[in-house]
């Protein structure tokens, strides 16, 4: 227990001095000590004070790992380790950080496009609209689903809109971050909805800064039928593809054999009944 106390003191002082890297170093050791005590799978048999202390340290560990720019996987693992502490059968008072941690978890689920996980987590939450940490991922998801990409884009790029610094750092941390996801979604919509777009509008709609960016973006999608011609972006093949698909369907439709087969089948069955 002595080493645990020392570790947590070191951890807290590193946190206060904002030496996040140092603090992050301590996390694995701290978790090891917790694991020895068995408190990582909390049950009501533990002393409430111990549980509270452990919960607080684990919460801070999540925040530290975000500040120290650890990978999303690591942050997520830590979050999943804090969550058992929020279980109502422990009878602990509600933590101030609970909503923030949950909000971060929702954001991670959203970033990695695990929508069903996002919604499962949301089922647990009573009024997400009333909390700024929870409201952020909820609104973001709503905008993405509705297709209000302009609002979503603003929310993930405008620093003022983040409910706290952790959200921003987490958002920027991964390589396939939300910006890329949103842009990709927009691209998928564009190719279905337009036959052609002027270059400047395409740039504007896709939130790309320069012509060069647009060129690389289009080049990546060349096999999907994107091409730049003169001053406009063409999605022509999309329409052609659709027509081709319809033609194919028609040829299947004329499959008389299918019709004969099923009618014979019905006849046989009716025969059995009569």
């Amino acid at each position: 227990m002595a080493s645990l106390q020392k570790l947590s003191r070191d951890f807290l002082s590193a946190f206060d001095e904002k030496k996040y890297d140092n603090a992050a170093e301590i996390i694995p050791k701290l978790k090891l000590e917790f694991a020895k005590e068995g408190i990582l799978s909390p049950t009501p048999k533990f002393d409430p004070d111990d549980l509270l202390a452990a919960r607080q340290l684990m919460e801070m560990a999540v925040l530290v790992s975000i500040f120290a720019n650890r990978t999303q996987d690591e942050v997520e693992r830590l979050i999943s380790e804090v969550q058992p502490f929020y279980s109502p059968n422990l009878g602990l008072p509600k933590s101030d950080n609970e909503n923030k941690i949950l909000g971060l978890y929702l954001l991670l689920a959203l970033t990695n496009n695990r929508i069903s996980e996002f919604h499962s987590a949301l089922e647990n939450i009573d009024n997400p609209e009333d909390d700024k940490y929870l409201n952020y991922p909820v609104l973001l998801e709503r905008w993405l689903m509705e297709g209000a990409y302009d609002k979503a884009w603003k929310a993930i790029t405008d620093t003022n809109q983040f409910p706290s610094k952790e959200f921003m750092i987490l958002m920027k941390s991964s390589s396939d971050n939300l910006e890329a996801t949103v842009r990709n979604e927009i691209a998928l919509c564009l190719e279905k909805a337009y036959t052609s777009l002027p270059v400047h509008s395409a740039k504007y709609l896709l939130y790309l800064k320069s012509d060069a960016d647009l060129q690389t973006f289009v080049a990546e999608r060349a096999e999907r039928g994107w091409q730049l011609q003169a001053q406009s972006l063409l999605f022509k093949t999309e329409v052609e593809k659709r027509i081709a698909e319809e033609d194919e369907e028609i040829s299947v439709e004329n499959n008389e054999e299918y019709l004969i087969n099923s009618v014979l089948n019905y006849a046989a069955k009716v025969d059995v009944i009569v």
Partner: peptide, 8 residues
């Protein structure tokens, strides 16, 4: 954007 998404 919304109309585009509805089309998609």
């Amino acid at each position: 954007y919304m109309v585009a998404k509805a089309i998609r």
